[in-house]
């Protein structure tokens, strides 16, 4: 774990660049992480990000399928918003932990 200043805020991040504490997140931080990945955020992106954050706060597991059923976007649209790894990038931008397996 290390501390990194993103959008003027010192946040704790994992070695892979994911926020350790989702309460440190704000929209400017999201924009800056997205820019590093090469994504320009739109209101639709933020709808997805807020959905992911709500689910995480409620301790529910995140799946691509779940996002597809959320009524916000289809899975295809999710890929359109976050190309080449929708869960990986959306969770990083949303300031929540990376989806992992047990190893």
């Amino acid at each position: 774990m290390s501390v990194k200043t993103i959008a003027g805020v010192a946040v704790n991040i994992s070695e892979e660049g994911y926020l350790e504490d989702m309460s440190q997140w704000n929209e400017e931080i999201a924009n800056e992480i997205a820019k590093e990945i090469g994504i320009e955020l739109t209101p639709k992106h933020f709808e997805v990000l807020n959905y992911l954050r709500d689910k995480t706060a409620a301790k529910e597991s995140l799946t691509i399928r779940g996002v597809g059923k959320s009524g916000i976007v289809t899975i295809k649209e999710l890929y359109g918003l976050f190309p080449k790894g929708p869960l990986k990038f959306s969770s990083k931008i949303a300031g929540i932990p990376k989806p992992t397996s047990c190893i």
Binding site: T100, C102, I103
Partner: peptide
């Protein structure tokens, strides 16, 4: 569908 065969930093380093 995950980011790799190993998704936890300790495991991807060790394995």
């Amino acid at each position: 569908p995950l980011t790799g065969a190993f998704t936890k930093p300790t495991c991807s380093t060790a394995l």
